[in-house]
Each structure stands twice: as C-alpha cells, then as structure tokens.
C-alpha cells in the first residue's frame, strides 16, 4: 500500500443515521455528494475536506481510511 493511499480518508456514510436531507450535497466543494433516493458519495471526487462531516445534523458522516480505488458507496 502506498503512503498516499494510507493518508486518504474519504467520507463514509452511516446509512443507519442518514436522513437524506441533502445538506452535504450543497456544501461539498468537490461535488462529490449526490442525492437520489439515498445519498451517493463519489469517492473519486472526495477531497476529504470534512465540511460535510462537521455540518451533518444527524452525525451520519465520518472520515474513514479507505483505498483510493475503492468502489463508490
């Protein structure tokens, strides 16, 4: 595993807590969030800035270590 992969901490969504309010979609500077029937997160676009994590009213978002080449959640 490369060092850059270890440092990369994209947002992970806790579906048990998410209430699909879409607030994170409007806040994401990288356009990595998208709301359909459930919240979609594009790991490839995520810059791990954490704006959405601090904002989320339900505390459903978290920065978690992951593989950069992981599939979209």
């Amino acid at each position: 595993m490369l060092v850059s992969e270890i440092k990369f901490m994209p947002v992970s969504i806790d579906r048990k807590k998410c209430v699909t309010c879409g607030g994170c979609v409007g806040l994401c500077p990288a356009n990595a969030m998208h709301l359909e029937t459930e919240l979609k997160h594009d790991v490839k676009k995520c810059t791990s800035c954490g704006v959405c994590v601090r904002f989320c009213p339900a505390g459903a978002l978290e920065l978690k270590q992951a593989n950069r080449f992981a599939t979209n959640s």
Partner: peptide
Amino acid sequence: YKAKNPMLVDSGF
C-alpha cells in the same frame, strides 16, 4: 457559485 459557504448555513434537526 461553487458550494454553499459553511459559515452561512445552519444545520437543522
């Protein structure tokens, strides 16, 4: 605009 300014949004529950 690019994204909403986090200082100018409220989080509601």
